[in-house]
Design a protein around this nucleic acid. Structure first.
Length: 420
RNA sequence: GCGAUCGUAGCUCAGUUGGUUAGAGCGCCGGUUUGUGGUACCGGAGGUCGCGGGUUCGAACCCCGUCGAUCGCCCCA
């Protein structure tokens, strides 16, 4: 026998109760997005590499090292999507979806990032995603966040809080950034080694460093609020008051930033509260939903300036928090205790299923052990079909009653034939 | 890219300071109790001990490498 190939590192085969939890997340998302009239969109799993490299920024590490890129037979560089937003932005431009603006879109599916797997982090993972494109007003942010909040509540997830920040408009953001660099440069020697590195490459990231040495210095770092333009401040005030009006709980997170430059104004993450059960289940990958406003993205793909805001959430991480979902109760187990009644068992099972009654049959393996297997499946009703002493026998045992007239009618009228 | 821990049957795991033919439970297959039933009993299949090399009279056990898993760091679209 030849050796069985192994699965690709960082991929998962999701099965049983885990797959049920996964499906529950997706079904809940689908239900909620309809409530908010987000329109369903199906996107390709791969795009020209350029779609992502231009959207995300050519020089960043994520583009350089963490994408699944390859050449197709025509020599074109393609990339398995590492996020939804860039592909959706490309579709918005190439399909003329401007005509539908403002456009509320929702999708879900697999994404690919070439990273080291760990808890809640895989190379092929799955997200739900919501975007509002072509809406510059803060009410769009509010609606998007209200939807996110409702998804999480409908999933029954507790102990998770919306952390909210503003990065201001382009000018605010640059002024703040310059002030941060100045502040940290003055105390460079006291920063962690990693943050000394960040100071050159991505100074905003120092703000959410886990190192205690950095945390102390972050505490008295300049705040974005001091650098906000009047417009940016008004925008953020409108978002927060809108959230209050919509009954969405939130907390200000002055250190919350985004890794990419195209973000403006609103930035947010839903994060488990410290010490909560949810935090324990997630390990160090703690953000379960994140997003923000990306008004600059369309231009980087060659389109007209188009305001947009969106979020995405990891299905696997959400599934870890929703608890066990069972695979659905077996209502009727049909047991053929003799080969003469196997066809009858099959006929009865089909009949039940055609009436939307959940049924399974037990007709394989040794006849004397079939009943035991049926019992183990924990059905509400066990129907035994048998042939002994030259006679056909039919009986049922009710473990837990089913309210169904159709079931009783089927059982009353079903007759064994013994045909083989 | 870096670090720590771990790889023994389909699954969960034992396996003594290195010492005969590597074990258990569950699951699977077969049989006994000729039974209205989840039990019990008997038997069976299934393992190159992740892979490769080394040390040794002798390695599941010690050493090196490699692959994989898990968790953390970096990064996080």
């Amino acid at each position: 026998m030849s050796k069985t190939p192994q699965a690709i590192r960082g991929t998962q085969d999701i099965f049983g109760v885990d797959a049920e939890a996964f499906a529950f997340v997706v079904e809940t998302f689908e239900r909620v997005r309809r409530l908010y009239r987000f329109r369903r969109v199906e996107m390709p799993v791969f795009e020209k590499t350029e779609v992502f490299s231009r959207a995300i920024g050519e020089t960043t590490d994520v583009v350089a090292k963490e994408m699944y890129s390859f050449e197709d037979r025509g020599g074109e560089s393609l990339t398995l999507r590492p996020e939804f937003t860039a592909g959706i932005a490309r579709a918005f431009l190439t399909n003329g979806w401007q005509q539908h603006a403002p456009l509320k879109l929702a999708t879900h599916g697999p994404l690919f990032r070439y990273e080291r797997p760990q808890k809640g982090r895989y190379r092929q993972f799955h997200q739900i995603d919501a975007e509002i494109i072509g809406a510059a007003e803060p009410q769009a942010d509010v609606e998007l966040l209200a939807m996110a909040d409702q998804v999480i509540r409908e999933l029954g997830i507790e102990g998770v809080t919306l952390h909210l920040n503003t990065l201001g408009d382009g000018d605010s953001r640059e002024a703040w950034r310059a002030a941060l660099v100045e502040h940290f440069r003055a105390v460079k020697d006291e920063l962690s080694e990693d943050s000394q590195e960040r100071l050159e490459k991505n100074p905003l990231r120092i703000l959410d460093s886990k190192d205690p040495r950095d945390k102390r210095l972050v505490a008295d770092a300049p705040k974005i609020d001091a650098y906000l333009s009047d417009d940016a401040r008004a925008f953020f005030d409108a978002v927060t008051s809108g959230l209050d009006a919509a009954g969405v709980k939130w907390q200000r997170a002055e250190s919350l930033v985004r890794g990419l430059d195209y973000y403006r104004h609103t930035a947010f993450e839903f994060i488990p509260d410290e010490g909560s059960e949810a935090a324990g289940k997630l390990g160090s990958q703690s953000t379960i939903l994140g997003g923000g406003r990306y008004d600059g993205l369309m231009e980087s793909l060659g389109g007209a300036p188009t305001p947009a805001v969106g979020w995405a959430a990891g299905i696997e991480r959400l599934a870890m928090l929703v608890g066990e979902k069972d695979e659905g109760e077996l209502q009727v187990a049909v047991v053929a205790e003799h080969s003469r009644v196997e066809k009858d068992a099959s006929r009865l099972t089909s009949l039940l299923r055609s009436k939307m009654i959940v049924a399974d049959m037990f007709v394989t393996g040794s006849p004397r052990k079939r009943y035991g297997r049926a019992v183990k499946a924990n059905p509400m009703i066990i129907v035994s079909l048998d042939y002994r002493d030259d006679d056909l026998h039919q009986s049922w045992r009710i473990e837990r009653p089913i309210e169904s007239d159709e079931l009783h009618e089927i059982m009353a009228t079903f007759t064994l034939t013994g045909d083989t």
